[in-house]
Amino acid sequence: MYIIDFHTHPFISEDENLCFYDANVDFLSDIERAGIDKFCGSVIKYLNPESFDEVHELNAHAFELKKLYGDKYIPGIHIHPKFVRESCEELSNTRTKLIGELVPYMMGWGDLSYSSKECIEIFKLAEELGMVVNAHPTTIEDMEKIVKETPKLNIVFAHPGEKAHYLAQLELMEKYDNVFLDLSGTGLFRYAMLAYGVKRVGSGRFVFGTDFPICNAAMNIGGVFGEELSQKDYEMIFHENAGNLLGL
């Protein structure tokens, strides 16, 4: 099975390596050992930026890594609602189609949520440009506002989460065609979670993700295969949906 991991966090410096343990992570060989063929995502670290430069540095690192990983890697870039002009400039010039994973709580967004007017302005440009956002979830209300404001922008929320949050995300997916869910992080370890979601919204709305190296990539692959799905469902979840979203 060809596998695209929609949600990873490659790194250059140690403060960008968010593996929880003091492991000697060799990003490419470790993720390939897990069985992943192509991976996407942003470089992240804890920030409270005073200027967009600090955010830009992470984006520049993603593109340094693109040089290293070539076609195996789709860089995801950051925007920041504190810096609307600079974020829009960043989007206008990028050649990647992927924004994020955006992680507001890590990146010092403060009171500016997805549904803030600043973020909406940036997301509207992303919508115009035909981009895709991978967003760490906030409250369901906040998430619903942004998907409503930008109906043509494909937004892939990260992490199914525990039952109540997952069910609320499924409701959003039923209501809005532009909402997708990546399977990284908490969720897959609850048996039948994915099969239940596929039954409700179809396999076209899920993309495979791991959050590697924060989470164990191989475990998530096993998690998907452990669910009773059709061969076509597996193909869609493991690579077709991500390919369609990113125009691969």
Binding site: S13, H56, E57
Partner: peptide, 24 residues
């Protein structure tokens, strides 16, 4: 390539930190 970190300060002249100048 990156800004200062612990390893930079331990490596003296052999890991000097740099600042990337953003386009905008």
């Amino acid at each position: 390539t990156a800004g200062p970190n612990i390893l930079n300060s331990l490596s003296g002249n052999m890991a000097l930190p740099r600042i990337i100048i953003p386009r905008n």
